[in-house]
Design a protein around this nucleic acid. Sequence first.
DNA 1: GCGGACCATGTCGAATCCGACATATACTGT
DNA 2: ACAGTATATGTCGGATTCGACATGGTCCGC
Lengths: 109, 109
Amino acid sequence: MSTAKLKRLKAAGWKAGSAKDFLQLSDEEAMLVEVKLMLTDAIKASRQKRGLSQTDLARKMGSSQSRVAKIEAGDASVSLDLIMRAFFATGATRRELQRAFGAREKLAV
Amino acid sequence: MSTAKLKRLKAAGWKAGSAKDFLQLSDEEAMLVEVKLMLTDAIKASRQKRGLSQTDLARKMGSSQSRVAKIEAGDASVSLDLIMRAFFATGATRRELQRAFGAREKLAV
DNA sequence: GCGGACCATGTCGAATCCGACATATACTGT
DNA sequence: ACAGTATATGTCGGATTCGACATGGTCCGC
């Protein structure tokens, strides 16, 4: 499954644009991976912009530091639900969500 | 409050009929609910636009008709991961995703 | 070089979510 | 009335994801 390979994908430094070829994902799976990567990047940026530690964010969203670390690392055990929760918990708005999907990528799939 | 909307709000993990719970809904939770409702509406629209039945979509995404029905109904047991998978499986593009997030307010409780 | 932040990673029992199935309702066309 | 198609709803065993905890690494001010 794509989520199982997400972690390895990030560790190898691959960008979302090349994820499909590298992992032989279906189009839908590739798009889901892209969505997750965009959001985890946006979470890290939003959190740091607001001067929050992973522990701070974890407390805000009723979770733990280790899980926030996994969220930002693109760990396979993290759902899109939790990613989205974390994104909003940083203080990001729906407009910022839309911008995260709009001001996008260097390379299309 | 219509029963249909109460049912859909169970997607947020809500107990139907409790105004108190509604008032306690945090901003992040409310935004997550909005995102989910927008997407489930978009899925249904995209599926019907392309002339697919729930069974067709289920086969495309390796799931079952009953789960597709639950996705579109905003059932509490459906994750955002599955919603996003279904959205892309209808043939929707990332541009349509962005457009769905930019859609005007649909949640009127 | 120590103590204190901050972040990464592994593990685990419990909670949640999954596909699948059974079944019900509604709306066709025959 | 009947058969076929489409959608809705409840349930269940197994799979996935959860928060929590333990622990290790890195960096910095003291």
